[in-house]
Design a binder for these strands. Structure first.
Lengths: 184, 184
DNA sequence: TTTGTTACGGAACATATTGTTCGATAATAT
DNA sequence: ATATTATCGAACAATATGTTCCGTAACAAA
């Protein structure tokens, strides 16, 4: 990719991130984005067909980073599934989120738009589905598997939101404990 | 209230409901609302300061009806809390929702906007808080009460969404059973 | 270095939407 | 019958989205 293109794209994403930490998506105008990014209006629309596509690509880059199934930055080539078979998959997720790369927590907090949670949730789905066996218990026998899956995913998302909205005073270990306490 | 005012207000809400079953809030324009309601633009803005206030009052009327703490229509003066002390509070809620008054289910479904769920959730909060004792168990001792409250509310909302999105094939009794199975 | 290609900037533009204003008219209340 | 109030319709300002065009600058390949 052309260096100019790359710089423009990054500048737009950077400006977008900054704006998102102060106001929500629908209150942000394209004018503000390009002003913060210091790029022309036509340039912005050459990169992103519409404002909604900008959001879409932004989320894809962001969550692909967290749910990356290849390797995990900072841990060399440590895979997020390394500890599969034990409960620490979700602990790793909470720990990673606590680092707050790209100010992702502001995007996931309740006061911000639900759009991000929708993207986050869809990424979380495959993760939960592949680890559903960890949660089997006597009560999962009384309900359909699809309902059970949905419950685990929802509970994780809601736990995360609760954690963020309450200032993240608990450690990742404690919040994982809360999460596991209620889902089984 | 003036008969003209009442008719206008109802016409606007009726048109709004119709539009909401096809598209989400942010895609609906005031022009479409007043066209469907067959009222003038100035009239609409005489009733509702902005589009957001329209939504707000619409939700308040809608959810006030369901969470009414005075009496419950259709059951004479049967109070929603009549059966407090047993689990049927939530069964009643599921049963009432199944009747789908004012097409409320379309508004709460996943494809529709999250705005309604936010209003619904805030109404649900007081209900859950006053019945929290029904859910006390050994696991609720391991976590903060605020987290526990939030979990019950979230699980109810997510159960409802799952029910709607999967076609509501289960009876209110069964879905209540699923709900109770996962929260305790 | 030269040449052809591609991205960029800036401004103007069309289009759509929100919310306001105003005067004429019709429904309502007393 | 009269005064009040809601409504209509149309025009209006303000703002946002997305498009178009052209001159300029950065890039890649010879």
């Amino acid at each position: 990719m052309d260096r100019r293109q790359r710089k423009t794209r990054e500048a737009i994403f950077r400006s977008f991130t900054e704006l998102l930490s102060h106001k929500e998506f629908h209150q942000i105008t394209v004018g503000e984005i390009i002003e913060g990014a210091d790029v022309g209006r036509a340039t912005c629309y050459a990169h992103f067909e519409t404002k909604d596509f900008l959001l879409k690509e932004f989320c894809e880059e962001l969550f692909c980073h967290i749910f990356d199934t290849e390797n995990h930055e900072g841990h060399g080539h440590r895979h997020i599934f390394d500890c599969s078979g034990c409960d620490s998959v979700f602990l790793h997720l909470f720990q990673h989120l606590q680092k707050n790369d790209n100010n992702i927590l502001a995007l996931l907090s309740s006061q911000n738009n639900e759009l991000f949670l929708r993207y986050f949730r869809s990424n979380l789905e495959s993760l939960v589905k592949s680890h559903l066996h960890l949660f089997n218990s006597q009560k999962s026998a009384r309900i359909p598997e699809r309902f059970w899956e949905n419950h685990i995913i929802s509970t994780f998302v809601e736990t995360l939101k609760w954690w963020i909205d309450n200032g993240m005073v608990e450690s990742p270990e404690v919040i994982t404990d809360y999460f596991l306490a209620v889902v089984r």
